[in-house]
Design a protein around this nucleic acid. Sequence first.
DNA 1: GTACATTATTTGTGTATACAAATATTAGTA
DNA 2: TACTAATATTTGTATACACAAATAATGTAC
Lengths: 149, 149
Amino acid sequence: MRIEDEIQQKDFKDDHRRMVVNLLFTNNWLNQQFIPFFKQFGLTLQQHNVLSIVRGQQPKPVCFGEVQERMVDRNSNVTRLVDKLIEKGYVTRDICQANRRMIELRLTPKGTELLSQIDEQMPTFFHRFHNLTQEEAVLVSKLLDKLRG
Amino acid sequence: MRIEDEIQQKDFKDDHRRMVVNLLFTNNWLNQQFIPFFKQFGLTLQQHNVLSIVRGQQPKPVCFGEVQERMVDRNSNVTRLVDKLIEKGYVTRDICQANRRMIELRLTPKGTELLSQIDEQMPTFFHRFHNLTQEEAVLVSKLLDKLRG
DNA sequence: GTACATTATTTGTGTATACAAATATTAGTA
DNA sequence: TACTAATATTTGTATACACAAATAATGTAC
């Protein structure tokens, strides 16, 4: 459905404005897809992002700063996200002995297990994004990279 | 900058996953552009969206349901957004006499004035999105429309 | 080794989001 | 007219975001 019809706005000032509104709108649509998906597993999008980052560095532990740098949403508050993940038993937090300002984050077996469960569901979940061909998906990524400069 | 470098993730499972992450990341980047821009005027992105919608229907008043349908971010709570706008004196809220469940929203002269001020700054602000040509901007919109189906 | 800057994380605060439930008004129906 | 359903908005609540300030540990210069 065209963005003009989605938000019932007949005419945009120019094509760049239409594109920006479309990006914002599409992001909300994306969130509406992701929120219930991760909710099944008791996670938010950002919590899952943190878990994935910790897993990605295994077997090395990860500190908060590294997590922040790699997060898709940089504005998330890593301390409070991790608090939730510890409560749920998916990660552990230890003070780094080499530099006691730093925190070492590690995935627990329970966290590893949860991520595998989610991985299993991912291919099915991602079917909904296959309205675009592989070539088009590559093109969108290229254009977004170019947009941000 | 390529999304792989932005979030330091070497390899995505496939092109659709890279695209989705890129969309989420780009949306955060977009927000970081818009938040300070609207903050100059004491508004949030959603508050500005509401004001624009009310102006778009002038001289007819607008009810909350219409605003919700036309908002780029449908999850916003119109009641509470409008509370803020009334506090600041940019809109008025009246009970519709024909159907007293409904609310009539109208822009005040102060609201009209604020929107004009913002309009003046818009072209300059949007320069930062001209890394893409007009053709590319059109293409992105088309692809996003197709993605959502 | 003391003072000051730097780095890493935490906390505080106001605002916003997500979602469910509540309230109020109108419409439809027996 | 009373009962029920539908519509429009509001409220409640837990969580999350944006941003500034605070805390804590380390590094560096003198």
